[in-house]
Design a protein around this nucleic acid. Sequence first.
DNA 1: GTTCACTATATACAACATGAAACTAGTGAT
DNA 2: ATCACTAGTTTCATGTTGTATATAGTGAAC
Lengths: 128, 128
Amino acid sequence: MKENSSIFCQNKNQPTERFLEVCLLLLLHEKDDYGYGLSQELPFFGFSDNELNVSTMYRILRRIEKIDLVESTWEESGLGPRRRVYRITEKGKEELSKWIVILKNRKLNIQKLIDRFERPDHYNHLEE
Amino acid sequence: MKENSSIFCQNKNQPTERFLEVCLLLLLHEKDDYGYGLSQELPFFGFSDNELNVSTMYRILRRIEKIDLVESTWEESGLGPRRRVYRITEKGKEELSKWIVILKNRKLNIQKLIDRFERPDHYNHLEE
DNA sequence: GTTCACTATATACAACATGAAACTAGTGAT
DNA sequence: ATCACTAGTTTCATGTTGTATATAGTGAAC
């Protein structure tokens, strides 16, 4: 069982903050970047100051590097500490594509729940 | 900081399977039900056979009872083992309403990500 | 010249959530 | 007797989180 688990990327959990992982992959799909720079793009996806935990973000970056979704090198900035600049790999791009499919589904399921909450009449015929 | 954390229900994480919690609250908002019965309604929200872990579901039911979002009583079914029948509380209804707001936001953020993946041109002007 | 704010990354810790598996147990059909 | 279905619980290893803490470079204000 669970052989149709393509819906689960890597057969792992899908905690919400996996969404952060996908956001990072998307941003790195657009262009190479480093942690601090990425953190400034994240409010676009709803991770505003209060909601972004930078520890979590840096941890995710290290984790997805370990599983070869991204690669990194150190670069001198001249205007502050060194930056670890990340680059998405082919494997990372494939992972991103799979996540897009999952997220489309997730969005639909959320919509279903909202509809059912706001228009209960459409589902009442199930009552006995 | 984090005082505007009404966006985080009970200040806790929002792992994806919290979505399962909200589905259960919604179903119990519609009518009283027991675990096994609820499990048969869950495919509607995307929790098909392969994707629903019944341990998780039963665990969530016990957890949300502990924090008074639902109450339960044992009932004889006559056609099998006893059933623990759950009923949503006022607190549970309030929690459900808060979650609906969160999920509407989550849906929007997912949509933003999908759009940005599929129509990168609209975001390219950011490049240097 | 030192304090402050900003830039930049990393790690340790306790708390919590998960999937998988095993377990108990009642009913009814083969 | 065995099987399939109904019904719920607990244990275990693994994984993820937020918080706090640490380090360190730059440049401006005082």
